[in-house]
Design a protein around this nucleic acid. Structure first.
Lengths: 159, 159
DNA sequence: CCTCGAAATGCAAGTTTGTTTCGTCAGGAT
DNA sequence: ATCCTGACGAAACAAACTTGCATTTCGAGG
């Protein structure tokens, strides 16, 4: 499903650009930055939250600070690409808390996962649970992150 | 650099679990949930922000809503792995707004990028800028996301 | 050209939330 | 035993958010 919501004007985009960087910015300051009153800013934010343009408001936690210093990418290739199997894999991968992100992709792999773990032993245990116990994984390739050069969910905004 | 900050107790972890899901939750409610007064919650949050446990507070924007409906993964392999070249690549990749995430990894690739673009033409243009114009990219593999099954920066918390 | 209605705005009041202050208490070191 | 440090809760305070309302803007008809 694409996106039905009404088009965003330059005010909305300017507001998003700010919230995307720091959503604790007071509406008064946002208003000054975009030349709008605080209530106007607030109405636009609420609308964008309701229509799903703003998917959430979250604190970003440093994984290393909570015992998950290792980030790993995994390319997963399934045995069967039947829709039923795909869906089962989606559900299983999503259910694992260590799986931070899960994408179903085209190309030489079927899924790409972003995983955070405490150590390689934890990763090894996770692969056993996710890939070996399930009999639908043909193979997977592991990439261990040595440097999280740039991390975020920031989307470039027009204007 | 690993992480020096003081250990987090179960209160901190409980607070993080909430903020990670919704950082607009009133401190009063957080206090009720974790059995602490609002000021206590606020002191702990401030401390975690200052020590970097909380890396940021952001609104998550739906890419499709702002004209970037396509998410792409790219594995990049460099010609030279001299430290100087690695650093140059890090800087160049990070500088591109379309590059949402950039990781320097071990294994059969050197970098993994997560990119959001409006259409394949935009991606093609980006590859030209990032990979071809730079003479240090040996090859790259592209994976187009058909389904963003699970997206986020949520870290699993002990306890 | 004018009128009408829908939608968005700013202002101001009212409410909720966040922040600071202050006094108290527990644990550790002197 | 005493002091010092760090953390807590209660209450006062400041700031931010939210709502109601009159006004403005803009476009579609008449």
């Amino acid at each position: 499903m694409p996106f039905s919501p009404p088009a965003l004007d330059s005010f909305d985009l300017a507001i998003l650009a700010i919230l995307q960087r720091d959503n604790t910015t007071p509406q008064r300051l946002i208003g000054e930055a975009v030349n709008l009153s605080a209530p106007a800013v607030q109405r636009r934010i609420k609308r964008m939250e309701q229509t799903g343009v703003i998917a959430g408001n979250v604190a970003v936690v440093e994984p290393a600070a909570v015992g998950h210093p290792i980030t790993i990418f995994v390319e997963v290739e399934l045995e069967s690409e039947r829709a039923e199997m795909i869906d089962a894999a989606k559900r299983q991968f999503s259910a694992a808390p260590e799986v931070q992100q899960c994408y179903y992709v085209t190309g030489e792999a079927d899924f790409i996962l972003v995983i955070t773990v405490a150590d390689m032993a934890a990763y090894e245990a996770l692969t056993r649970k996710l890939f070996f116990d399930s009999n639908n994984v043909r193979k997977f390739r592991t990439f261990v992150a040595m440097d999280r050069v740039k991390v975020g969910l920031t989307v470039p905004l027009p204007g």
